[in-house]
Design a protein around this nucleic acid. Structure first.
Lengths: 141, 141
DNA sequence: TCCTAAGTCAGAATTATTCTTAGTTGTGTC
DNA sequence: GACACAACTAAGAATAATTCTGACTTAGGA
């Protein structure tokens, strides 16, 4: 209950109308720690009962992105994934299974952008690690 | 001429057949320092005379990727860009115009992955800087 | 309660990419 | 050089992700 109210307040604070569909999309994203595609959110929401149409999920995700509650993550070809963790953080992407995991900002410190040529005004950065996750390591051995 | 021979040798060394179309795709990528989309390569090649079909450009790019002569760069929604610079390096992506620029590997040293949890086997990483390029800075002011 | 802008829907349209099938060509072998 | 065959290419159909369209609905302020 508390959680739901918090979501409603957050949406309102960003000037978004609170509709059942939009609520469901955002709640779903907050609830899961993977980085689902629009398609995955859609099917997840409609699993038990039809909740939202495809285009609604797309526009909801876009609206949430625009106000900064959600961000797009581009780590894989062709599809766009979404992440409700908008605090700065990095990503680990498994080469084998495609799984994506958040890496805490503090776990990768030491990136110094001093030497980047001065013409470029750097506002943010993020690191993408690639490699092999535990499951795939044991599966391959 | 030397350049052309070098390209031919490189392709052969990777076990790829040297065809006019594949040669043209790779030469085009090497020649430009931006990171074109498949679409851009296609229209560039066919600007003066029809050289390659759409699907040939796609399969050529894929073949070049597979042997490691070219890599995909995913910095922008929806489209896949290609980069003939396969030495490790980072990217700067302009928030305003979308321009992408290579950042030399040495210019961003000091990323230490020690603190990443040990279950993840990190094989490579790259940093994406986001911000505003010179042109856009002066355009906005 | 009423109004209206914002949101939603179903399905069509668009866009990037891949597949299919048939024809073409480079290359090792004779 | 001729042959065979696998790799390559073309044109267009197919697919998949996303966006658009136009009519309908609804949240939330007056």
């Amino acid at each position: 209950m508390r959680q739901q109210d918090a979501i409603i307040q957050t949406l309102k604070a960003k000037g978004l109308r609170v509709t059942p569909q939009r609520f469901a999309v955002y709640a779903n994203l907050l609830d899961r720690c993977d980085h689902p595609t629009a398609e995955q959110v859609l099917s997840d929401l409609n699993q038990e009962a039809p909740t939202s149409s495809q285009s609604t999920v797309y526009t909801s995700l876009q609206a949430l992105c625009e106000v900064g509650l959600v961000r797009e993550v581009l780590l894989e070809e062709g599809v766009c994934r979404y992440d409700a963790n908008v605090l700065p953080h990095h990503h680990f992407c498994c080469r084998c299974c495609g799984r994506i995991e958040d890496i805490a900002w503090e776990d990768l410190q030491g990136v110094s952008i001093d030497r980047v040529r001065s013409g470029l005004q750097v506002e943010s950065y993020e690191v993408t690690l690639r490699g092999c996750c535990e499951q795939c390591q044991s599966a391959n051995s």
